[in-house]
Measured scan of single mutants.
Amino acid sequence: TFVEFNGKKVEYPTPEAAEKAAKKLAKKLNLKVTKKNGNYKLE
């Protein structure tokens, strides 16, 4: 499962880990999380 932000793509071993990381990053970077095709994107 990938988390995409600032043009970077980071892969996580589980969807749970990706979701957790996405939410944490979104909060830190003041972005919102969108889920697309099972992957997460911060914008």
Rank of each mutant, 00 (worst) to 15 (best):
L31P: 00
K20P: 00
L25Q: 03
A26G: 06
K24V: 12
G38K: 05
K28R: 13
N6D: 08
A22P: 01
L31R: 03
K8M: 12
L25P: 00
K36Y: 14
K20Y: 12
F2Y: 13
E16N: 08
L42R: 01
K32E: 06
G38D: 06
N30V: 05
E4A: 05
Y40A: 01
K41H: 15
V10R: 13
V33K: 02
E16G: 09
P13Q: 09
A18R: 01
F2G: 03
T1S: 11
E11H: 15
K23H: 14
E11G: 10
K23Q: 12
Y12M: 03
A26D: 01
A18H: 00
E19P: 01
K35Y: 15
A26Y: 01
A21D: 03
K9S: 10
E16T: 07
T14P: 07
A22W: 03
E11N: 11
A18Y: 01
V3P: 00
K24S: 13
G38W: 03
K24E: 13
K27A: 12
L25M: 10
K36N: 13
L25D: 00
A17I: 09
A21Y: 08
V33H: 02
T34D: 05
E43T: 11
L31K: 03
K36I: 15
L29W: 14
K27I: 10
K35P: 04
T1W: 15
Y12Q: 00
P13N: 08
K9Q: 09
K23S: 09
N37K: 06
N39F: 09
K23F: 15
G7Q: 05
N37W: 06
F2I: 11
G7P: 00
A21V: 07
G38P: 02
E11Y: 15
K20G: 06
T34C: 08
K9N: 08
L42W: 02
F5P: 00
L31A: 05
A26T: 02
A21Q: 05
K23D: 08
E19S: 08
T34H: 08
G7F: 05
Y40R: 02
V10E: 06
T14R: 04
A21M: 08
K32W: 06
K23W: 14
K8Q: 11
N37L: 07
A22K: 01
K8C: 15
F5H: 06
K27Y: 10
T14D: 07
K23T: 11
T14Y: 06
E11D: 07
V10H: 09
E4R: 03
N6Y: 13
K27R: 12
L29H: 12
N39E: 08
K20M: 12
Y12E: 00
V10M: 12
E4F: 12
K41N: 09
G38C: 06
E11Q: 13
F5T: 02
V3M: 04
K35A: 07
L29Y: 15
E19A: 11
L29M: 10
N6P: 02
E4N: 04
V33D: 00
K35T: 09
A18V: 00
K8Y: 13
K20E: 12
L31H: 02
K20A: 13
A21F: 08
E43C: 13
V33M: 10
A22L: 04
K8D: 05
L42P: 02
T14C: 07
T1D: 02
K9D: 03
F2T: 10
K24N: 11
K32D: 04
Y40M: 04
K20Q: 12
T1R: 09
E43R: 06
Y12V: 00
N30A: 07
A21R: 04
V3W: 02
K8E: 08
A18I: 01
Y12L: 03
F5R: 02
N37T: 04
K20N: 10
